[in-house]
Design a protein around this nucleic acid. Structure first.
Lengths: 105, 105
DNA sequence: TATATATGAAACCATTTGGTTGCAAATATA
DNA sequence: TATATTTGCAACCAAATGGTTTCATATATA
């Protein structure tokens, strides 16, 4: 099981779950009502999101509220950051230039 | 085949390929030298990256140079942006508050 | 021209993924 | 207490994924 945050956000259903509970914490049942697949399928997604700490459960009687741990998304942000300066400073044009020169491994 | 950009960057080998050719465009062989898996395995990754236009091939004789289309990563950046303001403005604390109140679907 | 090199495509395979159904445990409610 | 509700876990399954080996094609080079 790889179970890193990049793999966690790769699934569109999981991204939709993230978007849902970003507004407010929700129970598995309430989350599942927003999708066509079964509650158990959603629970599996919640498990994956929990395992990489993108969401955090809070027990309340027999219900469990899942809430977004938004700071975990900083990891993605940091990965993107190293490329952001490339598209901001037009270094990609430098790449075009390099592409027209002789190269060897 | 889902083949969207989130799925493309989910694989650690593909992220390593992106990091490699961000410096300069490279041929499949040159890229494969940096990994333990076969050239064909790398070629499959390049195909996936090409299909969602994260990289762009340029023919040069019998060689093909793959170059990063860095602007495609903006799509990830835009997805992250909607959550960035959450961790910047401490709205996640508001989530904690909501979690302690009664909720219904 | 004959040979070597660079690449992509196809066939195959083991593992992972995302889904299902069924069940058990814990908590609420009649 | 008996029943209903909420949830997680296990078993199972089809499809996707990431890898391999083999082969065909195109371009350099001897």
């Amino acid at each position: 099981m790889r179970r890193d945050i990049f793999q966690a956000i790769a699934d569109p259903t999981r991204r939709a779950i993230i978007a849902l509970i970003a507004i407010q914490a929700m129970t598995p049942n309430a989350i599942a009502e927003n999708f066509n697949s079964s509650r158990q399928a959603i629970s599996k997604h919640l498990k994956i999101l929990s395992e990489c700490q993108l969401i955090k459960p809070t027990n309340k009687g027999r219900e469990i509220y899942y809430q977004l741990e938004v700071t975990r998304l900083k990891e993605i942000d940091q990965w993107i950051a190293q490329y952001r300066k490339l598209w901001e400073t037009r270094f990609n044009q430098l790449d075009n230039l390099l592409n027209n020169q002789n190269q060897k491994s």
